[in-house]
């Protein structure tokens, strides 16, 4: 094994620096207090700095002698579709009601797989909608309208 530059290490180091740094900047806006009476900003400042420092160490190590990890492909289609499905669920569940929202979310999600055929997607979505309605609304008495106000109910 040779030492080599590792893209994932540098990337993840950068993410840690970014998030840690953001929290450091954010916590400077709150009262820091004294060691006797630490203010709301002190602890996030400390931990944020620590995360950023660890991120820096990972990134530097990644430039010199990183872990060799195969980053692999990113399933863009799956990422896009699943994000969309979940956002759709959050946005419409109150308005459209449980049944239509579940059906659309399930249908969208099945499209994340490249192997799925349209007929199967519809069948899976229908089955899941029935199952989740039975489990959550009928079985567990979840207080959600089956059909929402946006549909004129």
């Amino acid at each position: 094994m040779e030492r080599r530059r590792s893209f994932p290490d540098v990337l993840v180091g950068g993410i840690f620096i970014l998030i840690g740094g953001a929290f450091v900047v954010g916590s400077l806006g709150y009262e820091l207090g004294t060691p006797l009476r630490m203010g709301p900003g002190a602890f996030p400042l400390l931990v944020g700095a620590l995360v950023a420092a660890l991120g820096l160490a990972i990134a530097v190590k990644g430039l010199v002698a990183g872990e060799v990890i195969a980053f692999g492909p990113i399933p863009w289609r799956a990422v896009g579709v699943i994000v969309l499905a979940l956002l759709f669920f959050g946005f419409t569940v109150r308005g459209l009601g449980f049944v239509p929202t579940s059906a659309v979310t399930a249908l969208l999600t099945t499209l994340a797989s490249r192997r799925v055929r349209p007929l199967m997607a519809v069948a899976v979505a229908a089955g899941l909608t029935v199952a989740s309605t039975l489990i959550f609304v009928v079985g567990l008495q979840l207080r959600l309208p089956l059909w929402g106000p946006w549909l004129g109910f």
Binding site: A106, T109, S113, V116, V124, L128
Partner: peptide
């Protein structure tokens, strides 16, 4: 293909 939509939903 059946399992993961179930988990997400």
């Amino acid at each position: 293909q059946v399992l993961f939509p179930m988990i997400i939903l």
